[in-house]
Amino acid sequence: RGLRRCLMSMNLHRVEESFRGIKTAIQAKDTFQNVTILSPSETLHGTQPLDVCCVTKNLLAFYVDRVFKDHQELSPQIMRKISSLANSFLYMQKTLQQCQKLCHCRQEATNATRIIHDNYDQLEVRSAAIKALGELDVFLAWIDKHHGGTSAA
C-alpha cells in the first residue's frame, strides 16, 4: 500500500481539534520558554521523502511511549483531549504498521529522533512532557505537510 494511501484513513482533523482545545492551557504551564524539544530547524525541517515514514513512526512512538505517559493531568476537560490525542496516535501507529515494508529507517531519520529524545532528557520529566505536548502543533504541521491530504475527514 502506498504510504499516503496507508495513512489516508487517519482522522488528523480531529487530532488538530483536540490539540487546539489544550494548547493554551498546556503552553501556559511550560516554564522553559527558551528551550525546544522538537526544534524544527535541527530535526524536522530537512526531512527527506525517504525518511518520512520512519520519522513519523519514531515520533508517534516518542509521544505514545513517553510524552502522554509522563504527563499527569487533573482537569477532566484536558484529560479528555489528551486521551483523544493519545488514542488517535495509537490508531495512527497501528495504521502505520500496515506500511512496515515502506518504513526503512536510515541514519538521518534515526539521528533526528535521537536529538528529540536527548532534548527531552535534558529537562525534568514533567516539564519535558508539558513542553513536548505544547509543541504538538509542530509535529501535526509536519505530518500535514508530509502526508498531505490526510487531514480531511
Partner: peptide, 20 residues
C-alpha cells in the same frame, strides 16, 4: 478508558463529557 489508557495507564479512567 481508551485503548491507550488500558495499555499504558490502566489506573486512569476519564469522566465522560455529559454523564458525570
Amino acid at each position: 478508558q481508551g485503548e491507550y489508557e488500558s495499555l499504558y495507564m490502566s489506573h486512569i479512567w476519564i469522566p465522560s463529557s455529559w454523564c458525570s
